[in-house]
């Protein structure tokens, strides 16, 4: 187990606090999802149901099953997973795939990249679920980690991902990734790619 010291923003004070990025999602992380994340998400879903809203209006990703995702890739070198913990609680999860996709942006077309299979932050960090989020910066840390994995594989920071509709602004504006439009081959989600130049700009 490798652990990296990182930061998250404590939304109560606005100040960075020490956090830990751990390589490989553990059984304890999966239990955190089931016993700590789910009740928060479910409470929100109950509130939305009480207002008569259907699953289409529920917070995106509510049905993701991290246990199944992690079980499906157990022992495969092509996948790397990360858990972000702060103040004893699981704050975010990410799954990377280094053998799935090749670049689509013309200047690096055909070269390999690290594909981000999944990124999720804890429900108490999402304004879609709670009124006052607890920690910020999970996306920033995860994308930086994905870039470093890409560099580790000599892929020069090239990464690609399909954003959920509500997160497009983050990948386009904050990460500065290239927007390659809605992808008909992948549930109509918008595909974003980061070139090595963009990766240098983001991590610099």
């Amino acid at each position: 187990m490798t652990s990296y010291p990182v930061f998250l923003t404590d939304k109560r004070t606005g100040e960075p606090v020490a956090a830990e990025l751990i390589e490989t999602i553990s059984e304890a992380d999966l239990r955190s999802v089931e016993t700590e994340w789910k009740p928060v998400t479910n409470a929100k879903i109950r509130a939305l149901m009480a207002k008569g809203l259907s699953p289409a209006d529920w917070p995106e990703g509510w049905h993701w099953k991290w246990r199944d995702k992690v079980t499906a890739i157990n022992g495969l070198l092509a996948f790397r997973t990360f858990a972000l913990r702060c103040e004893g609680k699981l704050q975010g999860l990410m799954q990377l795939n280094t053998a799935r996709a090749r670049c689509r942006v013309p200047e690096q077309a055909g070269k390999d990249l690290v594909y981000v299979d999944y990124i999720e932050t804890a429900p108490w960090n999402r304004t879609a679920i709670v009124d006052t989020p607890r920690f910020g910066g999970v996306g920033t840390i995860m994308i930086r980690a994905a870039i470093e994995v890409s560099r580790d594989h000599e892929l020069r920071g090239r990464i690609g991902l399909h954003s959920l509709p509500s997160a497009e602004a983050f990948y386009a504006n904050v990460c500065g990734m290239t927007d390659l439009g809605l992808d008909g081959t992948y549930e109509g989600l918008r595909y974003f790619e980061m070139t090595s130049v963009q990766a240098d700009a983001f991590s610099g």
Partner: peptide
């Protein structure tokens, strides 16, 4: 040359793919 990778990086990538396909 094509992938802009070292020999080690190509072989490691090949191993990841070979294992994935095999499993």
């Amino acid at each position: 040359d094509k992938k802009d990778l070292s020999k080690t990086a190509v072989l490691r990538q090949a191993l990841r793919l070979y294992q994935l396909v095999d499993v």
